[in-house]
């Protein structure tokens, strides 16, 4: 299994909720044209004629045509509701965050990191089997900032870079793997 490169985003929660609501409404109505417009697809060619729109999202996310729709939903969500503040070029970052001793010994920091790397709280269209990702609300993000700051001298360079990225966020933080 390849290791992913993590990116950190500042999240506009209200915008993401609006996007989620619109996406779910188009699927419930089987509005193929509306879905294509929302996801900025080139017409509804990505939606096989014989399938309802929601069925495509129920297919294995790694295969065509579901993969194309998930990618499109991912792009649309980022465009409408997320702004990237940090992009790691080190595939070891996630492993370091999950296992680096100094970070793990601070139980609160470790819990917050685990939460930030738990995809369970992401909207369904940003979750795919094997993909890293997660979300941290503002108060928890602020606490993690503080804890990472106090541990800074003990942390390896990739976690320090991540911590600097996190410090640029003043609201909800989202992590997504490549």
């Amino acid at each position: 299994m390849s290791r992913s490169l993590l990116s950190l985003y500042r999240l506009d929660r209200a915008a993401l909720q609006r996007f989620s609501g619109e996406l779910e409404a188009t699927l419930a109505a089987n509005d193929r044209v509306g879905l294509a417009a929302l996801l900025e697809l080139d017409g509804d060619a990505a939606l096989p004629e014989r399938l309802e729109a929601v069925h495509v999202f129920l297919l294995p996310p790694s295969a065509t045509p579901a993969g194309e729709l998930f990618d499109a939903a991912d792009r649309a969500a980022k465009k409408l509701a997320m702004r990237r503040v940090f992009e790691s070029d080190n595939p070891a970052l996630e492993g370091r965050l999950r296992a680096f001793d100094a970070l793990r010994e601070d139980a609160v920091a470790a819990t917050l990191v685990d939460r930030l790397l738990s995809p369970k709280r992401l909207p369904w269209y940003l979750r795919r089997p094997g993909r890293s990702g997660g979300w941290l609300p503002p108060e928890m993000r602020a606490e993690l900032n503080r804890r990472l700051g106090s541990l800074e001298s003990l942390l390896p360079p990739e976690i320090r870079s991540f911590a600097r990225g996190l410090a640029q966020i003043d609201g909800d933080a989202v992590v997504l793997g490549s």
Partner: peptide, 30 residues
């Protein structure tokens, strides 16, 4: 049925895929 599938996708995507494959036998689902 469609509304239920969307709600299930939101609540639990893995279960939604399993229901689509096992209960509804939707083409291509696993």
């Amino acid at each position: 049925r469609r509304r239920g599938l969307v709600e299930l996708l939101v609540a639990d995507p893995a279960l939604a895929r399993t229901v689509a494959a096992r209960d509804l036998a939707l083409e291509g689902c696993e």
